[in-house]
Amino acid sequence: MSALFLVLIGSSFLLSILLHTFYVFSNFGIQDIPNERSLHTERTKKSGGMVFIPCFLISVFLWLLLEQTDVISFIPKFPAEPKMYYFIFGLVFFCMLGFFDDIFHLTPIIRLLLEYSVVFYLLHALKFQFSLFGIQIGNEWIHLLLGSTTIVFFINLINFMDGLDLYLVGTLALGFLFLPVLLGISFQMEVSYALIPFLFCVSLSGFAFYNYPKAKLFMGDSGSLSIGFFLAFLPLCFQKESLGKVSDSIFIYFFLSPTFWTDGLITLFVRAIQKKSLFSAHREHLYQYLTELKITKAMVCLIMVFSNLPAWSLLLCYQLGFIKTDLSSEGWMLLIIFLYVVVYVFVRQSVLNRRKNIA
């Protein structure tokens, strides 16, 4: 990596710190008022996504400018393909949608319709492919409906789980380290694709600093929706380099954030069984229960972030051939998902019993 690209990374880091500092200590901004779901008790600024997403976009623009210098051969080129421009469009859309939701509190129906429309359009325009149990989905409309539903659900699952933002940022950062190998991508891949999530994490550095407990800034829906889209869309950008590997399986979305999926889905299932609203605020996620057990928020973040490692490690070992099994890649992924559900249910029940004993 050239010194020029290190200048890009350093500039992105400084820009992130400066912009977040300006927003946190400025007299304008959106305030987050604590509710029954909140882990904080004081008014705190939110909509941090309106800071780190512009920071990322400015960094991409600077990247494009550096390509025009005389040392272009020493800096990775930005992957200027149609799918990357669609990616940027989607990122901006979800950031702005979240920002309007932070201000006007859009109804779930309106927000879901807008999200579904944009995701459906992107999948249709770029003709991405998914497989289910190793079978390519041939019918275009079934393919689009299944893909759109999965991605919109994944984005909103991230949004539902934004009560502890540092947990989300940590999962994002650690997940990106495993992403290329999880997707079975050749080491001959364009390095620029791997640098995009790295640059995104650098743009988040200022937010992470001010979100560290006791937090001075929350990401709000503008941040959680855009991060959800970033995570959901990025594997699709790798498909050309990894065609035929696990990346075109729809189950790969579980492995982008295993603990998020397990905690989110089981919590939604429990609330549905109890006939509670799936859209109202609550404190029934595992990470929220853990904060009630005299465990610091920082420690809860570490526990939840590193609880993703077993799933990533098991899939990594399968990819590298260290685990010999007759199971297909999707069969192996389903086995890992089943194990996560079993362990999660056991841990959740243990934590609930301990809460009762403390009470």
Rank of each mutant, 00 (worst) to 15 (best):
P213E: 14
A311I: 03
N159P: 06
F207K: 06
P76L: 04
V191I: 15
A194M: 11
T21M: 01
F28A: 08
Q349H: 01
L62S: 08
Y210F: 09
I295H: 05
D162G: 00
G223Q: 06
L157I: 04
K356Q: 09
F13C: 05
I358P: 05
V60T: 04
G90D: 11
L278H: 13
G138I: 03
L172H: 06
L314Y: 02
L278A: 14
D162H: 02
Y23F: 15
A173H: 02
M219Q: 13
G321V: 12
I33L: 15
L320D: 15
G138Q: 06
S203A: 05
S12E: 07
S2L: 10
F198M: 13
D263N: 01
L302T: 11
S257N: 03
M299K: 06
F200M: 10
G264P: 03
L65T: 11
H105F: 00
F254N: 01
L114F: 15
F176R: 06
Q274Y: 09
S307F: 10
W261T: 07
Y212N: 07
L4W: 10
Q319G: 15
S242Y: 01
L314T: 00
T325M: 06
L64W: 11
H40L: 00
E140H: 08
S117H: 14
Y86P: 08
L126Y: 11
F338L: 07
T267H: 09
A208K: 00
M50S: 03
L65F: 12
G49D: 15
I295F: 07
L157N: 03
T107H: 10
H143I: 13
V71D: 01
K324S: 14
I88T: 13
L290M: 15
L132G: 14
E36N: 05
S328W: 12
I110R: 11
P79T: 06
A281Y: 10
Y210D: 03
P82L: 12
E115K: 10
Y86I: 08
R283P: 12
I185L: 09
F230Y: 13
T149K: 03
F238S: 14
Y287Q: 03
G163W: 06
L217T: 01
S247G: 04
T107Y: 09
S59P: 07
F306S: 05
I17K: 05
L57A: 06
K77W: 02
G228K: 08
I323S: 01
R271C: 01
I323L: 12
T267L: 08
C301T: 15
L179A: 09
L132Q: 15
K83S: 00
G184L: 00
M304W: 12
P54S: 08
S280R: 14
